[in-house]
Design a protein around this nucleic acid. Structure first.
Lengths: 354, 354
DNA sequence: CGGAGTTACTGAACCGGGTAAGTGACGTGA
DNA sequence: TCACGTCACTTACCCGGTTCAGTAACTCCG
């Protein structure tokens, strides 16, 4: 029984009215009530197998999809989680970390029918504001926090909202929120032990942003482990993670009277920059200077010599973070999750010092 | 009925019930109806200045935000646009392009109070499925399409849905959708003309995925421009954009009997890999081999010699794409937008051939 | 054969905003 | 003095899907 264009009559260009099908449309076609359709489509008791099949067939045929807004309204669930990043475009682009993390987060989210809302903002204060807005508007069910800082207003702010949140970083940085982290200290211990075994005694580090907690933790771990192993007190230079600052820091280290024999870089782009600088200044890598990159990507492998790197599965890290967050959303508080420790991948950029 | 605490009355830890404020709450406090509140908050006539001020003050005080689902339901507008990417995690991470693009897209979106929904999927077919779902569920008002392929089901599929969409790529790839693009052909012309002027006659190219339309367009332009300038018929090697394949392709080119004197790479990671391979094989860059990278990032500047690159403002590109899409969403069809042509940035990796 | 239980369904209300169409209290001009 | 217009609100109903509380019809069983 084909009834003519119900209420909305004037069609624009011969096209269908593009009226997205609703359960009311299905109900009309099937000759039942909206409610029966709702029960049928959600596999809830209350409709006969025959009716259920008919309704499902009609839904399939007319391409019905549940309107997410309507559903969110009743279930008070957005099926969306959020991630705001506060780093400048140029830096975000050059660090493979975030893209790989996002990619891993997606893997888990899409398997569970959840979407990811992303926003890039200039600074952490605005990041909190974005989270406040998202939560207030009911757009997200939870969020990820990355790049935790020394005193970080986001931690307290998000906790106050009562919004499920996963901190990508060490528990000591997470406050009352749930951390998903990997043990940087152990990774650094492996690295320094390895360099010590090669015969190095002076190991410097070109670190990331000093205000990030994970930078501080690495700084502190390096102090402690160096002392334990009997290495020289380490020189640590802080940068903004850019290649330019990595190059500059390397130049400073190499020119200093107490030149280190090995350098650990907090990301791979700085390690590559450091490698170029060292070679340009006539040093042999690894003969005169050994280099280690923290986080491994294609970049570490395509330069000569290939870089010894602290390798970890970043997409998996993201997947774990997403899984943790979704569990919190659906089942309430969870303790946190410790991911695998980065594994040292020795390549051509490290050797015994001459 | 086994669940008793359903009326969420026993608060867990002394916290407020976390009932997000609605306009009904404001109405109650102000002693007016919901509608008066709605009018007041939306700056519509129908309430006295005094009442309006009172209502706004209360809204401010209790931290009211419009529920996005409820709003989407009546306005049939999600205030969200979508981007699905179908590249493997490892490749996405290493190419600064997407992160910078997203960052630029965000700049425009957040200024207009619009959110970005992101999804990473394994292949283009699933990307279309994601778009179908998002559109069917009313989650997005429009989408971006990147990495258009030779026959691309997404173009037709998205057009069929009647969903606003911007194609990041050449008009010839966009079908009936709206393109935002920059003139690769002109950029390549500048590059080849420059290399020709330096004295190069044999210019190869290490290209990206052959199924991408923009790769094809570059291939074709290279053919034509090379012929025009009197260069040798160009050798083009297709890759998956990874450093590994870039290195391999370079090795092949260098070892071939008709070794080119210059190579253009479709992204910077491959150019860096190519540089390493050339140096490893004993070639002097730029003396024996000149290299050009398509798309410029920090990477091009931190290696030695720094890479001559086709530089363009990718965040701005994203901003233009976002602006175009939002215009389509709010005002209907627009013609498309041509972004600035990439500018050749000569650095140390190019010189006259020996 | 009558009451209880089950099955298959429906009407009404709800989520949190929005719009259209009133309504009563004023002010104003003829 | 009265009809008319405005203002400042209100009532009623919508968006699309979910939930609760019925209600017939049918089955089962003592």
């Amino acid at each position: 029984m084909d009834r003519m264009g119900s209420e909305n009559e004037p069609v624009k260009r011969g096209r269908m009215p593009k009226h997205r099908p609703t359960i009311a449309d299905i109900a009309r076609r099937a000759g039942v009530s909206k409610v029966a359709v709702s029960y049928a489509l959600n596999d809830r008791p209350g409709v006969s197998p025959t009716t259920r099949a008919t309704i499902k067939a009609i839904a399939q045929e007319i391409g019905w999809r549940p309107n997410s807004a309507a559903r969110a309204l009743t279930r008070a669930r957005a099926d969306t989680v959020g991630l705001a990043l506060s780093r400048p475009a140029k830096l975000l682009g050059v660090e493979p970390f975030f893209m790989e993390l996002i990619s891993g987060i997606e893997t888990e989210l899409s398997a569970r029918g959840c979407a990811l809302l992303l926003q890039v903002v200039p600074d952490p204060a605005q990041e909190l504001e974005v989270y406040r807005r998202w939560w207030g508007e009911g757009r997200v069910d939870g969020v990820f926090l990355a790049d935790v800082r020394a005193p970080d207003p986001r931690i307290e702010g998000v906790a106050e909202l009562g919004m499920p949140a996963v901190v990508i970083g060490h528990p000591s940085a997470a406050g009352s929120l749930t951390p998903v982290w990997s043990d940087d200290s152990a990774a650094l211990r492996d690295t320094l032990t390895y360099l010590h075994a090669l015969g190095h005694r002076s190991v410097a580090r070109v670190a990331g942003l000093p205000e990030l907690i994970h930078t501080r933790l690495r700084d502190q771990a390096q102090q402690e482990i160096s002392a334990e192993l009997g290495l020289d007190t380490p020189v640590v230079v802080h940068t903004d993670y850019s290649g330019e600052e990595g190059a500059h820091a390397t130049r400073r280290l190499i020119s200093s009277p107490s030149r280190p024999t090995a350098v650990v870089y907090d990301n791979d782009i700085m390690a590559v920059a450091g490698l170029s600088v060292a070679q340009e200044m006539g040093l042999d890598v690894p003969g005169d200077l050994s280099l280690v990159a923290w986080d491994d990507s294609q970049l570490s492998r395509v330069v000569r010599p290939p870089l010894t790197a602290l390798s970890r599965d970043i997409p998996a890290y993201g997947t774990h973070a997403a899984r943790t967050l979704l569990t919190m959303v659906t089942e309430g508080p969870v303790p946190g999750f410790q991911d695998a420790t980065a594994r040292l991948q020795p390549r051509g950029s490290t050797a015994p010092p001459r």
